[in-house]
Amino acid sequence: MTGRLVALTIGAIVLLTVPLWMPGIYYVNVTSQILFYAIFALGLDVLAGYAGLTSLGHAALFGIASYATGYILGLGAGHTVAIIGAMVIGLISTAIFAALSLRATGIGFIMITLALGEILWGLAYRWISMTGGDNGISLHGRPAPFGIALSDANAFYYATLLVFVVSLAAAYIFIHSPFGAALRGTRDQPRRMNALGYHVWMIRFWAFMFSGLLTSISGILFVYYNQFISPPTLALTSSAEVLLMVIAGGAGSLFGPIVGAALVVIVKSIVSGFIERWNFLLGAIFVAIIIFMPDGLVPGTQRLLRRWRSAAKTAKAAKTRSAS
């Protein structure tokens, strides 16, 4: 417990001082990206990890919030209206997604979310009067809450960090709550949970809504960061990318998706500096992790450590025994 506290403190200090020791603005921006993708990955993890429902259409929800922000700003509204409007639209879309896809579980759920994602991608791509088609929607400027201009990279980083910490805390509380326990129960034994008196569908629905909330938040941060949104953000590749973050880090843990987001964003930023073949690497990482570390990096490493520790302990015990 104290070890964890120390780790948390160190983590907090490192994150709070990023603009001080990072060698340049570019790296501060990469860290901002890691943080909002981590929120996105946490959102998907609530569903794919804790509810056992793998969504292949989450990029569409992410994209809806981004497009909504851009569209509302384009109508001439202020940032507050745009952000609140995007959240509302994101949540309504999530409710529709959930109502449609929760008719199935397992592969059926994957297929429906995939289909919904493709529909939204097609709409973004073709409904030119609404979305600008291939040209996407550009934003002009970031908000300046309390007089702090977020157009500054460091200020945007701190704003993102704040949202990240709040989101992570919310996810932590959610997962460890009675509702969170019920949710994990529906993942492991849905029939049994029903027999114990739980409304399994409704539990999944609200978990989906929470997932959509985090996803919408990250979508809004994304569009403010990039100042631009276009159809590829909603494509299957994007859904696959965030799913990779969750699975690479470890679905069903809170730390895993954050590690996964960091891994994907860092590899993507570094690798794209050298080659354009990011997708090949993405696919290769996917395949490698599924084969070699199906639980993800965080649980996988934990298991290795535990095995190593218990092996050390047994060796020590054996030594003491033989000595006595």
């Binding site: 509380i173 460890h176 709550s177 009675p178 969170g180 326990a181 019920a182 114990l196």
Partner: peptide
Amino acid sequence: MLSLLGLDKLRWNPLKRFDAQ
């Protein structure tokens, strides 16, 4: 505890800590 929670209103609560009930 999960069995008990199934009949408890608390099962919808996303804010309290489960193992502290």
